[in-house]
């Protein structure tokens, strides 16, 4: 079933909407949830919450990329769960991702709005060549491992590492130039 057909089911408030979305994407979405959460049970819970949010928001939302939309919901749910339940186990992948992104931080002394940081990230990503942007999103949004990125893109793992390392360096420089102290 295509994304358009699944969204039609949501619009029609059909009970098959979530079933079909799950059939199409649950494997990848669960894998995304496991990038951030340390257990299958927590990942299943995150998926269920995300499907519920999708049901509540489509319509009026009509995403062009259903998987991307659901992935965003899963991600938000994962972070909500981690924030609310400090005892929840973080995945090894999440620890790795945060360790990498710590390279982008010049100064931890200043707080600012999450929206401002998101705008800066969007601006930074808009200036990247498509292949670099894709690598960055696949790594830091979808949580793919380096080996998975290499398999996905056809680049060697070393090239993936090098490209991401340079992008983190550029992001740090970019944020400094914009006068943002993190």
């Amino acid at each position: 079933m295509t994304d358009g057909e699944i969204i039609e089911l949501f619009n029609a408030r059909s009970g098959d909407a979530v079933t079909e979305a799950s059939k199409a994407y649950s494997g990848r979405l669960k894998r995304l949830a496991l990038s951030f959460l340390g257990s299958e049970q927590d990942a299943d819970e995150a998926l269920n919450d995300a499907y519920m949010k999708a049901w509540q928001t489509i319509p009026p939302m009509e995403p062009d990329d259903l998987f991307g939309y659901l992935a965003r919901l899963v991600r938000c749910t994962c972070f909500d769960m981690l924030d609310k339940h400090s005892a929840l186990k973080r995945s090894a992948c999440l620890v790795e991702l945060t360790n990498e992104l710590s390279e982008c931080i010049a100064d931890t002394s200043t707080d600012f709005e999450a929206g401002e940081l998101a705008e800066l990230l969007n601006s930074f990503l808009s200036k990247q060549k498509p292949y670099k942007r894709r690598l960055f999103v696949l790594r830091y949004f979808y949580g793919l491992k380096i080996s998975e990125l290499a398999a996905e893109t056809g680049f060697s793992e070393s090239k993936v590492n090098t490209a991401l390392s340079r992008m983190r360096r550029e992001l740090k420089d970019y944020l400094k130039r914009k006068g943002v102290s993190l």
Binding site: C104, T110, L117, L121, N122, Y140, F141
Partner: peptide, 17 residues
Amino acid sequence: MNETEILKAMNRIDGQY
């Protein structure tokens, strides 16, 4: 501000990306 906040901010990147 910490690295987790950058990761969270990725939730709000443009849908086209």
